[in-house]
Design a protein around this nucleic acid. Structure first.
Length: 463
RNA sequence: GGCGCAGUAGCAAAGUGGUAAUGCAGUGGACUGCAACUCCGCGAUCGUCGGUUCGAUUCCGACCUGCGCCUCCA
C-alpha cells in the first residue's frame, strides 16, 4: 500500500500523490515565539515529524518547512510586560523551541523561515492582491485606522471551502465587533499600521506590520512554490488561519491551489479540560522535560492517533514511562544491529495508513515477542526490523543503559553510591548473608532503584 | 444559532458487517536463595434505544453524555 492521508479539504482519506516525486513539499505551522511552548504545540511538531520521516522513506527529496512567527501582537504585548526588546524575546523562545523539539526527537526541518525575514515578500503579495482586486486599503483618515489593508473575502467565490462554512454562517456567529474600516464584516487584515512604539516596516500604506496569516502564504510561495503537497497544523488553525492563507495565496497566484493535502491534528486537553490561560493549566514542554525524558512525551503523543483528541495527565505520562521502560528493558543487553525498515511489516504499513502510530507502536511490542521465539540470524533480522520501525517513529533512540540510569527528577542517590551498595550486597551474598543482601536491595528500592541479578552480575535501574 | 468531533476492559488506545489488536495496572504460574528481568496464562459484546441485514461494536435514525471551531489559539 502507498501512503494514504486524511485530507481536511474533502474530509476523506486519499492516496497521496505528490505533484513532483522528485521534490515533495511539506509545510507545518510553527509557534509564535512569545513564551516557552506548551505540550499542545508539541503535538503537531511530533506528528508531522513522523510524517516527514515516512515521506523520506518514500521519496528521495522531501522539503519540510516549519515557520517561526516572530512578529505578532502577542510578542509585542510580552515585550511591554517584560520590558524587553521584541527580538530578545523572540530569539530566546525560538531557541528554546528548537531545543524542546529536539528533546522530543524531532528532526530539524529543512527550512525554518522567520516571518520578519520575509517582509518584502509579504508586501509584494499584498500589492498583488490589491492589483487583482482582492484587497483594499482602508478608506479612512482616522489616525489609528489609517494604514490597514484588508482582504475582501467576497472577491473569492470559494472562500470557506476548507472550513466548510459559508460567509453567512461565519458572520451569524461572529463574537467580535466589526471594525469600521472593513467594507465587509468578514474581511481580514493583511497589513496593519504600527504606532511609533510598535515594531513596523515601511510599506506603500505607511509604517506597519503584517497580519497573522500573511507570513505563511509569502514564505510558502518563496521557498516551496505556489502549490505545495502537504500543509499541516492544529485543528484550530483551519479557521481562520488556513482558510485565509488559502484565500491570499490562491488569489495572488492566479487561482492555483495552495496545498493539495491539508492535515490537522486534534487538541490536547489537560485532565479533561482545554488548556487555557484562564484555567492556568498550561503544560510547558520545558517544564515537563524536567520530569520526563523527551521520548516519554513523544511516546505519549504517538500513542494516540494524531487526529483524535488526547487527554494529558500525570497518569498517562507515568504509564508511558513504564511502557518505554519495558521496551528499553527488552533491548538492554542485546547486541545492537543495523536497523532495517521492513516495508511489508504491519508497523510500517500502519504508518502509511494516515499515520496510525498506535498500531505501529503495538507492532514494536509484537516484534519484541517474536525476537524471543527465534534465534541466530533470524533473531538478528527481527531485532533489525524492530529498530528500523523504532527509528521511523523516533523512539528507542537512546542507549538503554543510559535510559535506565538517567535521573528521574528530584534528589536521587548517585550512581556511585548505588554501585557501592551493589558491591556490598555482592559480598553479603558470597557470605550467604541473604538477610543482609535483601536489606540492601530494599534500601535501594526505597530510593527508587531496582536491582536485577543475572549470571553476568547485577544490573540496576531507576524506576 | 451554524459547522464538526467523540463515547471500546481499572487507565490508555487501535480496529472490523461475521462474536474486539496492543500497552500500563491487576492477577495465576515458570524462573530466582528472595526478587527483578523474561516467558506462559487470565479480563470487555464495544453510550442508550430502534432500523437495515442471515448476522452490527462496525451501516442508518433518534436520544443521552462529553468536546471543539465560528476571526487570540497547536
Amino acid at each position: 500500500m502507498g501512503l494514504v492521508l486524511y485530507n481536511s479539504l474533502n474530509r476523506k482519506k486519499q492516496a497521496f500523490t505528490p505533484l513532483d516525486p522528485q521534490r515533495v513539499t511539506l509545510y507545518a505551522c510553527g509557534p509564535t515565539v512569545y513564551n516557552f511552548v506548551h505540550i499542545g504545540n508539541a503535538r503537531p511538531a511530533v506528528a508531522f515529524d513522523t510524517l516527514y520521516r515516512v515521506l523520506r522513506s518514500l521519496y528521495s527529496n522531501v522539503v519540510y518547512a516549519r515557520n517561526i512567527t516572530d512578529i505578532d501582537d502577542k510578542i509585542i504585548n510580552a515585550s511591554k510586560d517584560l520590558g524587553e526588546e521584541i527580538n530578545v524575546i523572540s530569539n530566546r523562545y525560538s531557541e528554546a523551541y528548537f531545543k524542546d523539539m529536539a528533546a522530543l526527537n524531532t528532526l530539524q526541518p529543512d527550512l525554518a523561515p522567520y516571518a520578519t525575514q520575509h517582509i518584502p515578500e509579504m508586501i509584494r503579495m499584498v500589492e498583488t492582491l490589491i492589483e487583482k482586486g482582492h484587497a483594499y486599503a482602508a478608506d479612512t483618515e482616522i489616525a489609528d485606522q489609517k494604514g490597514h489593508v484588508l482582504f475582501a473575502v467576497q472577491s473569492m467565490p470559494d472562500y470557506g471551502q476548507l472550513s466548510g462554512r459559508s460567509l453567512e454562517d461565519m458572520l451569524a456567529g461572529a463574537r467580535v465587533e466589526v471594525a469600521s474600516y472593513k467594507k465587509y464584516a468578514g474581511d481580514f487584515v493583511l497589513w496593519k499600521p504600527s504606532s511609533d512604539s510598535e515594531p513596523g516596516w515601511y510599506s506603500p500604506w505607511g509604517r506597519g506590520r503584517p497580519g497573522w496569516h500573511l507570513e505563511c502564504s509569502a514564505m510558502i510561495k518563496k521557498h516551496l512554490g505556489d502549490t505545495i503537497d502537504i500543509h499541516a497544523g492544529g485543528q484550530d488553525l483551519i479557521f481562520p488561519h488556513h482558510e485565509n492563507e488559502i484565500a491570499q495565496s490562491c488569489c495572488a497566484n492566479n487561482g492555483k491551489a495552495l496545498a493539495n493535502y491539508w492535515l490537522h491534528n486534534g487538541f490536547i486537553n489537560i485532565d479533561g479540560e482545554k488548556m487555557s490561560k484562564s484555567l492556568g493549566n498550561f503544560r510547558l514542554v520545558n517544564d515537563l522535560l524536567q520530569q520526563y525524558p523527551g521520548e516519554v512525551l513523544r511516546y505519549v503523543i504517538l500513542s494516540s492517533h494524531y487526529r483524535s483528541e488526547q487527554n494529558f495527565s500525570k497518569d498517562l505520562l507515568d504509564s508511558a514511562w513504564r511502557s518505554m521502560d519495558s521496551l528499553y528493558g527488552f533491548i538492554r543487553g542485546i547486541d545492537s544491529v543495523e536497523p532495517l525498515l521492513n516495508r511489508d511489516g504491519a508497523g510500517y504499513q500502519a504508518l502509511l495508513d494516515d499515520l496510525n502510530t498506535p498500531v505501529a507502536i503495538s507492532e514494536l511490542y509484537r516484534l519484541t515477542k517474536e525476537v524471543n521465539q527465534v534465534s541466530g540470524k533470524e533473531q538478528q533480522d527481527k531485532i533489525a526490523e524492530l529498530m528500523g520501525l523504532a527509528d521511523i517513529l523516533g523512539l528507542l533512540q537512546q542507549d538503554p543503559e543510559q535510559w535506565f540510569t538517567q535521573g528521574r527528577g528530584g534528589d536521587e542517590i548517585s550512581a556511585q553510591e548505588i554501585e557501592a551498595l551493589i558491591q556490598q550486597r555482592h559480598e553479603a551474598k558470597q557470605n550467604k548473608d541473604y538477610a543482609g543482601a535483601d536489606a540492601i536491595r530494599q534500601q535501594l528500592l526505597d530510593q527508587g532503584v531496582v536491582l536485577e541479578d543475572s549470571r553476568d552480575g547485577t544490573q540496576w535501574r531507576r524506576s
